[in-house]
Simulated scan of single mutants.
Amino acid sequence: MKIALAATEKLPVPAIRGGAIQIYLDSVASIIGKTADVSVISIKDPELKESEERNNVKYLRFDEDSYLEQLTTHVKNAKYDVVHICNRPTWIKTLAEASPETKFVLSVHNDMFAPDKISDQEGMDCISLVAKIITVSDYIGNTITSRFPDAQSKTKTVYSGVDLEDYHPQWTAEGSRIRRRIRDELGLEGRKVVLFVGRLSKVKGPHVLLQAMPKIIEEHPDIMMVFVGSKWFGDDNVNNYVKHLYTFGSLYLENVTFIKFVKPRDIPGLYTMSDLFVCSSQWQEPLARVHYEAMAAGLPIITSNRGGNPEVIEEEKNGFIIYDFENPDAYAIRINQLLSNTNLCQRLGKYGRAKVERDFGWETVSKNLISVYKEAMRYSLGRKDE
């Protein structure tokens, strides 16, 4: 099978600038490439060649400003069996018209079928032309099928994943070593570390965690809340919201620290050095990949009841869901509970690690994708019910 995996026009693959889609594509490509002819297509970057081959995968990179045009020409000429397009439903019609024999699979990582993003006609055109639609959560699937019921038979949730070998829980020998080293580097030895990883954006809710600090400090004066991220992937420039966070955080200099953009390869160690992970998203999150990362590192998770986030949380088994997600006190209560109970933290963390090993490794994700590609091929041949 000859397959192309096409990223959006935003960030390059591999994910040297970050990006969940970019991490996703690069991770599954090398596994699928063991049994199929795989190409990954993304935008050009000064640090990457325009084309190269590594780990049985061809990488092609096009100009950001003419990305769809170049992608369309390439797909037309390359004669792929399956082209997997990420997050761009409005591209499907152009690509399908250029290469009618190709089978198109659309993966949807955000609410791309919202009325302000796609018209009724564009949505119906896309759904009629794709063989399969993959969504990163049931929540995202429902945003599509509730508006376009005809998409129901083509839509399937394929959860994302994580490289299990990159993450070392603190109870392992390697995890213990990493934890000591990074805590020593950051001056956090002996501290109780709560970790936030994500864009410093209001929709991600870091300000809610800062508002929770007084009640957390009251019970745990040795807490350090570590915020990892910047306003946008790879961009450490400071906007007004980030300035507000820095100013707010300065009220708790002994208990709050900010670490700007971290390259993906350096992220796992920050999880390992932490005691628990919190996702305070205020928007309808598709399903943030930080949940998979935290589970892989063996951390208990506190997450907001927004979008697809709760789908990977088993309450009181690998974490807790905050239903009153706008309320700082709700986070403080759960954070204090976990920081006060080491045994509970360990039990939740070990359950989460076992869960991610079972369900969310890249091998599992790749197997699920290959199954979808095969279904797409059968569908296109008029045997969709087989």
Rank of each mutant, 00 (worst) to 15 (best):
L129E: 09
A330H: 10
H207C: 06
I32H: 14
M225C: 00
V228W: 13
G234P: 06
T364R: 08
S66N: 15
N305G: 02
A114T: 02
P12T: 12
A297C: 05
N55E: 15
T8M: 09
K192H: 07
I32D: 08
Y24Q: 05
D150G: 00
F148M: 05
L348A: 06
I370K: 11
D120S: 14
V262Y: 10
D184R: 13
F113C: 01
Q152C: 10
E174Y: 09
K10D: 14
H220Y: 04
K263T: 15
E53R: 15
P89L: 06
Y67D: 04
V40I: 13
A20Q: 01
T94H: 08
V278I: 08
T73H: 10
V365A: 08
K317L: 11
I85A: 04
A354F: 06
K367N: 09
G361I: 07
E52V: 07
V312A: 01
G190Y: 05
S250N: 14
A212I: 08
A114K: 05
V57H: 11
L381T: 14
F258S: 13
E122P: 00
T364V: 08
N255R: 03
G269C: 02
F320W: 10
S250T: 11
A98H: 07
Y379A: 15
N309P: 01
D111W: 01
P46L: 04
E69S: 15
P286W: 02
T145D: 00
D111N: 13
N341T: 03
G349I: 13
E165P: 01
D359G: 03
L11I: 07
D116N: 14
G229M: 07
Y24T: 02
I118S: 00
W232T: 12
P169S: 05
E69H: 12
A288R: 00
R353N: 05
K49N: 10
R378I: 14
V40E: 04
Y271P: 05
G198C: 06
Y292E: 08
H74T: 11
L270S: 04
Y373E: 02
H84A: 04
E386G: 04
S39R: 13
H291K: 08
L344W: 05
N305R: 12
R179V: 13
Y24G: 01
F233E: 09
E47R: 09
V83R: 07
G19F: 03
M273H: 06
R88N: 07
G298R: 02
K103T: 10
L95M: 07
E386H: 12
F113R: 00
T35H: 14
R88L: 06
N237A: 14
I118A: 01
W171E: 10
E218G: 01
S66T: 15
D266H: 11
D359F: 10
N305D: 12
M224E: 12
V203W: 11
A20Y: 02
S107A: 11
G205N: 10
A15I: 11
V136T: 02
I144Y: 01
V108L: 06
F261S: 15
N341W: 04
W283C: 15
G361P: 02
K243E: 15
H84D: 11
M225T: 00
T342W: 06
F104M: 07
Y379E: 11
I134S: 00
T155N: 06
I301R: 02
K243S: 15
V130I: 08
G229I: 14
E189L: 12
W232D: 12
S146D: 12
L164R: 02
L48V: 08
